[in-house]
Amino acid sequence: MGADAAVRCEALIKTFGPTRALDGLDLDVRVGEVHGFLGPNGAGKTVTMRILLGLLRGDGGRATLLGGDPWADAVALHRRLAYVPGDTNLWPNLTGGEIIDLLGNLRGGLDETRRAELIDRFDLDPRKKARAYSKGNRQKVALVAALASRAELLILDEPTAGLDPLMEAVFQDCVADARAEGRTTLLSSHILAEVEKVCDRVTIIRKGRTVRSGSLEELRVLARTTISVQVAHDGMEIAGWPGVFDVRRDGVRVSFEVDQPAVGAVVERLAALGIVALESHPPTLEELFLRQYDAELAEAGVHQ
């Protein structure tokens, strides 16, 4: 086990009766990075996290967390990590402040200065009973409790669901701070813009398997660049060029997608046609993400 791996899953399998929730999942999170964990609902993100926390027991493969076994060494490992569950359920008759103290103490202590600062930054009223909190406020309680700990690993399951855009920005700052302090973060999310902003590397999973993993730069190479161009004449012949897909007329312009390796050749040929105007943008994470799910999208009747 290399010292640089905070989390490593190899061919992880988990079944619930006839359902195979994880089907040979691989995940590799390096120490000190912010790792995005992406996948549609039901892909197995939460199940993976719960196995890493020793709440569920894997049926096959291997999972290692901070160099230990997440099932057998649960208590020792949990002193070094903090978790924010996707569905934040809090004891309805305890106040937010009490719950932060409780979870902090059970993890082995809170940083008092940071606790006060986070409550302030997230604009949380710690004197309210949990039953009176909205979903977003419950999420804030769990986030403050996790971020105020001295944990070296943060496991966050869709932590910004229910937060308003302002609080999302605060959250992103906090993750950046954690990274600067050398902490590791595993962050599952649906909000791709957020992942794009804060994550160093991402793992995309689908139906319990890993489909892509790497830095955003590495993943972009696998995707297509979108080009929108106005040339001297009609320009529809572009459709016949190698590496070009999905050509559409868009007013006076032509839009199309280009495979990353073909970009150079395509631009040269466009120059020969006489470019009036050209705009290109690299693939967004969203496009990257959606490309992994072509089959599901077709099933759902969505046309790209």
Partner: peptide, 23 residues
């Protein structure tokens, strides 16, 4: 109606046993 509660938890209630008793 619910009134505001304490912002901090007493030390004894932040252990598993303390919480179980509290609940």
């Amino acid at each position: 109606t619910q009134r505001a509660g304490p912002a901090r938890a007493p030390r004894w209630s932040t252990t598993p046993l303390g919480l179980a008793f509290r609940l």
